[in-house]
């Protein structure tokens, strides 16, 4: 999805994992995904560079749909739809 499209998304839940290092964001995402329903959207805030590569791979394995990334000044917003 393009940044414009992503910006319009209203996420069902936001996981703020800024300030944690690997595997912090991944574990936070794993914990939070259990609290939303299938088809709902989760957004992860991360300041860890590696997360941008890791979360898409995690989504692939868990069959969640990775929607894309919005880059903010000091962190990234990663969007995914729960399978």
């Amino acid at each position: 999805m393009s940044t414009e499209e992503l910006k319009k998304i209203k996420s069902n839940t936001i996981v703020d994992a800024r300030g944690t290092a690997c595997p912090g964001p991944l574990l936070a995402a794993k914990k939070a995904i259990g609290e939303i329903e299938s088809g709902e959207i989760m957004e992860i805030y991360s300041s860890d560079e590696g997360t941008k590569n890791d979360i898409p791979k995690w989504c692939n394995k868990m069959t969640h749909e990775f929607l894309g990334i919005i880059e903010e000044d000091s962190y990234s917003r990663l969007f995914l739809k729960k399978a």
């Binding site: 690997c22 595997p23 574990l27 995690w58 868990m62």
Partner: peptide
């Protein structure tokens, strides 16, 4: 180990 657990 914890990463793998996050991968179920």
């Amino acid at each position: 180990a914890t990463g793998a657990a996050a991968f179920d």
